[in-house]
C-alpha cells in the first residue's frame, strides 16, 4: 500500500500549487472587485457586480470547462494548469469579494467622518483607516474560503491535470484498492486543510494584534 504513496504525494504537490496560486490570485480579485463594488464610479461598480454575480451564480465545473474547452475555440488556449488556476481564482475571488465588501461596510461611518475631518482623500481613508480595521474581520471567512478552494481543486482532474484526485482515480483503475487509495487521499486532503487553517490562524493573530491588546 505504501508504494502508492509517492504517486499520491506527487499529485498532492500539484494540488498544493493550484491551491496556493488560486488562493493568492483569488484574494487579489476579492479586494479588486469587493472594493470595486463599493466604488462611486458606475462603470467600475457594474463590472464588479456583474463579475461577482456571474461567478457566484454558475457552477465552478462549468466555468472550468468553459475556460479550458470553449476559450480555445475563440483563439485563447490555456494549459490545464493555467486554466485550472484561472477558474479557481475567479470563482473564489467572487465569494471573497463579498467578504471584502461586507467587512469594509462594517467599519463604522464615524471612522469615515473622522477621516474626512482630517482631510484624507477617500482613497487614503480606505487604505489607512477602513481596510486595516476591516482586514481582521475578513480573515476567518477568508480561511473558510481557502479550505473550500483546496477541496475544489479536485475538479481540475476533469481537465486532465494530474492532481491528487486524478492520481487517486488512476491508481484505483489500476489496482482496484478503492478503500486504501481513497482513505489515503482523504487523509492527505485533510492534512493539507489543517496546514492551511494553521497558516490562516497565524495570519489572524498577526493582523488582529491591535484588537487583542485592545481590552480596557
Amino acid at each position: 500500500m505504501l508504494d502508492m504513496l509517492p504517486t499520491l504525494l506527487g499529485g498532492a504537490w500539484v494540488t498544493v500549487e493550484l491551491t496556493f496560486w488560486s488562493t493568492l490570485i483569488g484574494a487579489l480579485c476579492s479586494f479588486a472587485f469587493g472594493i470595486g463594488r463599493l466604488s462611486g464610479n458606475p462603470v467600475v461598480k457594474s463590472v464588479s457586480v456583474a463579475y461577482i454575480e456571474v461567478f457566484r451564480g454558475t457552477s465552478l465545473l462549468v466555468q472550468m470547462f468553459w475556460i479550458f474547452f470553449a476559450l480555445p475555440l475563440m483563439g485563447v488556449s490555456l494549459s490545464p494548469m493555467t486554466a485550472g488556476i484561472a477558474a479557481l481564482s475567479l470563482n473564489i475571488g467572487a465569494y471573497g469579494a463579498e467578504v471584502v465588501r461586507g467587512a469594509i461596510q462594517a467599519v463604522p461611518k464615524s471612522q469615515y467622518e473622522a477621516s474626512r475631518a482630517l482631510n484624507f482623500t477617500s482613497w487614503q481613508a480606505l487604505w489607512y483607516v477602513a481596510l486595516p480595521q476591516a482586514l481582521p474581520e475578513m480573515l476567518p471567512p477568508f480561511g473558510n474560503l481557502a479550505v473550500q478552494n483546496l477541496k475544489d481543486t479536485a475538479l481540475v482532474s476533469l481537465i486532465t491535470l494530474s492532481d491528487l484526485a486524478f492520481r487517486a482515480e488512476s491508481l484505483r483503475n489500476l489496482t482496484q484498492k478503492s478503500t486504501e487509495i481513497y482513505g489515503m487521499t482523504l487523509l492527505i486532503y485533510f492534512a493539507l486543510a489543517l496546514v492551511l487553517t494553521a497558516v490562516m490562524k497565524v495570519l489572524e493573530k498577526r493582523i488582529g494584534r491591535w484588537k487583542a491588546g485592545g481590552g480596557r
Binding site: 486595516p132 491591535w210 485592545g214
Partner: peptide, 11 residues
C-alpha cells in the same frame, strides 16, 4: 473637529 464619540482610529 472633535466628535462626541471621539472617533479615534482604534488600530
Amino acid at each position: 473637529m472633535v466628535f462626541q464619540q471621539f472617533n479615534l482610529f482604534p488600530h
